[in-house]
């Protein structure tokens, strides 16, 4: 009886606490995919790596005038967007060689969300930007070189709940 009462009180106070922190409300979801782009042998990045779908590969090849011959998916991460807290994307988990922190700037409007975005490489901040993202329109970043190729990030707002 006492245990049940204790559990009930715990749940009550926890929910009250959570409700009080509106900043933790989830207002969307962000995703980052990291691709290995190379003109050399793609298996140098890893033998079991998958190719992106033909549609995605076509898109990646169209991003720059000089595109790469081969693309492989290195990693992906998807995380909630909190109303007032930053969150992290770790696409190469458990490696933290590339990290993205993001935090919304104000309310989403007309299906778009403005974010503070920071890209980290080797635990150093390498880029800070203020993109406005909307579903279906990823932001692409050509990042550092590795093993004769280059890492390409596709950052996307995959869900907007507001």
């Amino acid at each position: 009886m006492i245990i049940r009462l204790f559990c009930a009180l715990t749940i009550l106070f926890t929910s009250l606490g959570s409700a009080a922190d509106l900043g933790k409300e989830v207002i969307g979801r962000m995703q980052v995919q990291v691709y290995f782009a190379t003109n050399g042998e793609p298996s140098i990045a890893g033998k079991a790596l998958k190719k992106p779908s033909p549609a995605v590969e076509k898109k990646l090849k169209s991003l720059r005038r000089t595109s790469f011959k081969h693309y492989r998916v290195l990693g992906v991460d998807r995380q909630p967007v909190f109303r007032s807290y930053e969150n992290w994307l770790t696409p190469l988990k458990p490696s933290e060689e590339l990290l993205l922190s993001f935090e919304p700037r104000g309310k989403a409007q007309s299906g778009k969300m403005m974010l503070d975005l920071e890209l980290w490489q080797s635990r150093k901040k390498i880029m800070k930007a203020g993109p406005t993202l909307e579903k279906g329109k990823p932001l692409y970043i050509f990042g550092p070189k590795w093993r004769g190729g280059r890492l390409l990030l596709a950052i996307e707002l995959v869900e907007l709940l507001q």
Binding site: L63, R64, S122, K137, L139, I141, F142, K145
Partner: peptide
């Protein structure tokens, strides 16, 4: 699409 190209970054060691 919007593309940011970052040049001059340190290479990730092979």
């Amino acid at each position: 699409s919007t593309v940011i190209v970052l040049d001059g970054l340190d290479e990730i060691p092979d």
